[in-house]
Design a protein around this nucleic acid. Structure first.
Lengths: 343, 343
DNA sequence: AGGAGCAGAGAAAACCTTTTCTCACTTGAC
DNA sequence: GTCAAGTGAGAAAAGGTTTTCTCTGCTCCT
């Protein structure tokens, strides 16, 4: 047995295929073919090489391999979502989808700095990434960096992209319908909508879907993405004369939180008097409200998974149809509306 | 001018140094030396090569370069902090410190799955990372993966590591002192401490520092890391007979949030009647409380920066002293205590 | 027996860059 | 007019792997 007489092969550096070849008593080419399951050789030889490789702990150098194959099994994820509320679930989905294929992910947070973005893109290209996924915190804004005419494929996940690109985003209208229909199904008749700035595309989508079902008995209340706005909006509604809503559909979970707090301060019971539903299903927020918040989940992890599989397909040269793909939201039922999924 | 007659060099693939050499009418070696500012050659030649390279948009292939230099200018960040509350600031710091050096970061979220961790570590090693930074969500827990005896350096950032390793962590005792001394300075005399599970090292550190200053007039109240515990603890305190605290030092911002909510429900004014201070300075939480929460910031970004620079030094073969490095916390003053930094 | 065909395995090129070595030529000194 | 020293630039090897091509025997058929 030539192999096994060393735990720490004297020479410097990692174990290469050359060491495997020597230990197995074959040439480098034969070793390579044996390990990759290609080429012609005796079954006995192939097994011996494989065994030896395992014994001495050989792992192929991905750099060398990538140099030749022009595939680095690496992709870049570019995001301006510093806080990571949207990007992290997306990232988790991407990673989950790609780890099986041996692909690793460079994460680059570029804030909103075009120069920094440029630097990171160039660094990733230098490292021969197989593709780039652009991600953000807003569906109707682009990253501050030009990703057209890159030598690698690009897909966009939860961020705006150019017309002929592949874009994944949540179906906010469908998500809003889910929420409002749920309220209707629970018997609610006067449903208010307190949401973020009208300048946000998501806000308009959600408000549009809301209005289609709920009508215009209650006006949509646009504001900012903050608890304080939720509280203030409730104050406005309850200082008005006339009938009060029996349900409030909120543009995100922070607003919903403010709404719930304000309702409790007015001794209005949730969900008995008023049902509240949020958007984003930001667990750390939704689970800590009193009562826990029923909320629309945008399925960002699934979105990341799709984006990952798509960039992989593109990297492998498979054709992928361009266009916007809306992925469905789903409703996470907690206690702030009453009811349960079995009802 | 040989260069410039093509926007899209007919052949396939990216632009290599061979193209630069041809376009500049020199050999590959000369081109390389010119671009790297080494070797001997006429100043005119050097400038011409550089100019041509710029014109045709040459960028060296990092894979090829890494193959030779055995430096990939890539590091891995391993974390089990899925939610990213701790890892993201650390990551931002690392990235910020390393981008200037052309180093990119693989982010691998491994949940608490040892098998997944192993896969990611091996993938990173195959890709010849120059080093690995392990990070987590708890100072007294290790990642579920063995990082000893790796062929690359490892540093630990906000997670437990083996005795002879380089570990960066926040100085929680100092942070707690900062908070309590601030309360004392504002004239508070009965300071309570509502915090997380005693099993957490951070909790014991913070509680220890608290007790040293505040004494044992108020017992430390251990619970869970949730708003509900903050509310419940306040209920307990105010249902007891005897003098009530005039300040509450909370183990994290979520607890502080619950405390503030519970105090308001009792019509106890913050900060007039009771000062509240949190820990973590989790902005999205601290800024949305009423009033905004004064909180201890653990300086995770700086921690990441230090970890990044250290792994870089190790990768370059510079000696680095092993041991635990505690990085200082600082106090972010908002309104929940009264007072301002100028006082 | 002579050749076709095939099984098994190695040699060498290729990927792209860096670096060491070598070579040809010029200049200046004696 | 030689020699030494210096200048500018190219040839070649190295890094680890994959892949194509080539080579040597062997079997089997006629």
């Amino acid at each position: 047995m030539e192999a096994g007489l060393n735990l720490e092969e004297g020479k410097k550096g990692r174990i290469t295929i050359r060491d495997v070849a020597a230990a197995a008593g074959v040439s480098i080419s034969t070793a390579s073919k044996a390990l990759n399951g290609i080429g012609r050789m005796g079954e006995e030889t192939r097994e011996r090489v494989k065994r030896v490789a395992r014994e001495i702990g050989f792992r192929p150098n991905a750099l060398a391999r990538g140099l030749l194959s022009k595939r680095s099994f690496t992709i870049g994820l570019l995001t301006n979502d510093t806080y990571g509320r949207f990007t992290l679930p997306v990232m988790a989905g991407i990673s989950e989808a790609l780890v099986d294929h041996g692909v690793s992910v460079f994460l680059c947070a570029i804030e909103d700095d075009p120069a920094l973005g440029q630097i990171h893109v160039e660094a990733m290209l230098d490292k021969q990434v197989d593709g780039i996924i652009a991600s953000g915190k807003r569906l109707d804004r682009s990253l501050p960096v030009d990703l057209s005419n890159l030598p690698v494929p690009v897909v966009y996940a939860y961020t705006e992209g150019p017309p002929d690109s592949v874009i994944f985003r949540s179906d906010d209208a469908q998500g809003a319908r889910l929420a409002v229909e749920w309220l209707v199904k629970l018997g609610r008749r006067r449903i208010a909508h307190i949401t973020g700035p009208e300048s946000f595309f998501s806000v308009r989508e959600r408000a549009g879907a809301y209005a289609q079902i709920a009508g215009d008995a209650e006006p949509v209340m646009y504001g900012i993405w903050a608890e304080s706005w939720g509280r203030e909006a409730v104050a406005q509604i309850w200082s008005r004369s006339g009938e009060k809503p029996d349900a409030i559909f909120c543009g995100n979970d922070q607003i919903a939180r403010g709404v719930i707090d304000a309702l409790r301060e007015r001794a209005i019971r949730v969900p008995e008097d008023v049902s509240v539903v949020g958007f984003d299903n930001w667990e750390i927020m939704a689970e800590q409200t009193r009562p826990p918040l029923t909320s629309v989940d945008m399925g960002l992890k699934a979105l990341g998974r799709e984006a990952g599989l798509t960039i992989l397909a593109l990297a492998e040269g498979k054709p992928v149809e361009a266009g916007v793909r809306k992925l469905p939201c789903h409703l996470v039922v907690r206690e702030s509306c009453g009811g349960s999924l079995e009802d």
